[in-house]
Write a protein that binds this DNA or RNA. Structure first.
Lengths: 191, 191
DNA sequence: GTCTATACACCGATAGAC
DNA sequence: GTCTATCGGTGTATAGAC
């Protein structure tokens, strides 16, 4: 068969590479992710990676960053909208964040790419994205009846709780810390 | 004068370099901290750095890690001991952590060196150190009357809160987030 | 679309003059 | 104790065969 006659899937090879590339960038950071490591993770040669990413490492990181933002949006923040009661949406958001970081066993690629030499390129974009997400989270707390100031506090409280749990689990090399802490964070949500 | 006749300061040149080196490792990570950047930050040539650190970059990182552990211990965790009431010691601990990360404007070098290729070398040591610190923090909560299980939860709650506040402030490029969140964390401590 | 071979810059590290 | 000069290795990136 002619591979696939349907239109719009001419990028399938490229997108198939992204998960393996993401693993390397997550574990090694942008500066530690060498083309040799990236090639080994994908099973391709270094040169072949340039066929899919003519811009090289920088283009891979940019594509992965876009991908990670979309994934965190879809897994977690998009659940803040909808017709469910606001408190149930908040719980779904927390669960979605947990999915995004694989229950504490992975890392947030967005946060990784905010550090080192990649941070100089993407740091401001990332800061803007988190500012927007933070506002949407606060708005959902307002739907629960919180006044604006308290809702803002609750939003940063939850975001810091999530990222702190992920960070401590990483430092302790113990994902169970993340899972246990998430259970506690969920109990503190408005009922 | 003969520079300084008192004994025991033969390492002063080396220790004087550490702050500049720490800045580079904090901002660039281990893999992004090239000898050229490190040399520029210290005002020395790359070769001269090898006079003070014969083991090169790895020895610099190891020295900085030891230094950071001592600094976090002295600034924050050592304040969990003493004759003050336990609740005041906890407040002093939080203030000490704030000092250690320069009120949210810096980063925790220990956490930075737990990632990338440096993590493969130092990750297990760091995990053990944080496990010990976590236990000592829990013990202080027990002194406040918390039962063991609740004290353990309060300890990881506080640690995740501190590191989450630091992480979110970094992502948002806004240290005021860290300062505001710390005020809230202190209010939640046992009275 | 994948590969081998290669170009060239920079990396970490060393030698040796001063 | 600092430097310039240099080494070998690896980094990113490209050329061109298949």
């Amino acid at each position: 068969m002619a591979e696939n006659a349907s239109p719009g899937n001419h990028r399938s090879a490229r997108t198939d590479l992204l998960p393996a590339l993401a693993d390397v960038f997550q574990n090694m950071g942008y500066d530690g992710a060498t083309l040799s490591l990236l090639a080994a993770a994908t099973g391709l040669s270094r040169a072949s990676l340039y066929h899919h990413f003519p811009g090289g490492k920088a283009e891979m990181a940019a594509a992965l960053l876009r991908d990670a933002v979309v994934e965190l949006e879809q897994s977690a923040f998009s659940r803040l909208a909808g017709t469910l009661p606001a408190d149930e949406r908040l719980a779904a958001f927390v669960d979605g964040f947990s999915d995004y970081v694989h229950e504490g066993e992975g890392r947030c690629l967005i946060a990784v790419l905010a550090t080192g030499s990649a941070g100089a390129v993407h740091g401001t974009t990332i800061a803007g994205q988190f500012a927007e997400w933070s506002h949407r989270l606060a708005a959902t707390f307002e739907e629960c009846g919180y006044k604006p100031k308290r809702a803002g506090r609750a939003a940063t409280d939850l975001l810091t709780g999530l990222y702190g749990a992920l960070q401590l689990a990483t430092l302790l090399k113990d994902p169970s810390v993340f899972r246990a802490q998430l259970k506690r964070l969920k109990k503190r949500l408005p009922a």
